[in-house]
Computed example of a mutant assay.
Amino acid sequence: MHDTPDPVAVARRIAERSGRLGISEVELARRAAMAPRYLRHLLEAGPGFDPGGFVRIAAALDSSRDELVSGRADAPPGHGGPGPHPRLQNLTEAQCWELVGTHGIGRIGLPVEPGPVVLPVNYVVDRASFAFRTAEHSTAAPADGAAVSFQVDHIDEYLGRGWSVLALGPAHQVTDPVELERLAGLPGASPWAGGDRPRWVRIRPEEISGRRLIAG
């Protein structure tokens, strides 16, 4: 069940937190007011065995029980580790477009000085292209015709599987008033970052590819 914490993952988070703070297992047991042997038993048994004990462990680590048991809500994906027997599967172009859907969050890679920059943007899919809104003088507003990359992915942290799609092609500013009005009416067109973002950028991929991570 998804609601049952994995004792191995919980023990790993506690060990990582202890390591960052420079606290040994013996010192952690002392701070949590329990015998080292009992602490080891708790880590092996999991939070369901003694919920109050994990509250004391969390307090000793200047953390919260929820963070130790479930992980940080804002942590990047990948903390759960790979699933059983992982393998990669190449995606067809049609599968790539199906996975990115009609809109979502992607990352645009821009060729700027002194080096490439990757920025998150919320996008819409429109006629085999990606389009997004940005401010007039934003870093995410590439020069017209600039070669860029655009990447979208999804990770299932619990099952250890997911997919990633990468598109390569030129970016162009949308200037036609009719097109601008139509794009603004598409689902997901409102910029998450808010503010005045009148500029629409379209990326029509010359190449799109993807891979799916399968487990089990």
Rank of each mutant, 00 (worst) to 15 (best):
R107K: 14
G109P: 02
L110C: 04
G115C: 09
P116T: 08
V117K: 05
V117E: 14
V117I: 09
V118C: 08
V118H: 03
V118L: 12
Y123W: 03
V125Q: 09
D126Y: 06
D126T: 12
R127N: 15
A128S: 13
A128G: 05
F130V: 00
F130H: 02
F130W: 09
S138W: 00
T139V: 15
T139Y: 07
T139E: 15
A140Q: 11
A140I: 03
P142R: 02
A143Y: 10
D144E: 11
A146M: 10
A146Y: 12
A146H: 07
A147H: 13
V148M: 08
V148A: 11
F150G: 01
D153E: 06
H154D: 00
D156W: 13
D156C: 06
G160C: 11
G162K: 14
W163K: 11
V165A: 05
L166S: 10
A167T: 00
G169I: 08
P170L: 15
A171C: 09
H172Y: 12
D176V: 05
P177D: 14
E181Y: 01
E181M: 02
R182N: 11
L183P: 01
A184Q: 12
A184T: 08
L186D: 03
L186M: 13
G188T: 09
G188M: 10
A189I: 00
A193K: 13
G194K: 07
G195P: 12
D196H: 08
D196G: 05
D196V: 14
D196C: 09
D196Y: 06
D196K: 07
R197S: 07
R199A: 15
V201C: 02
R202P: 00
P205G: 13
E207G: 06
E207D: 09
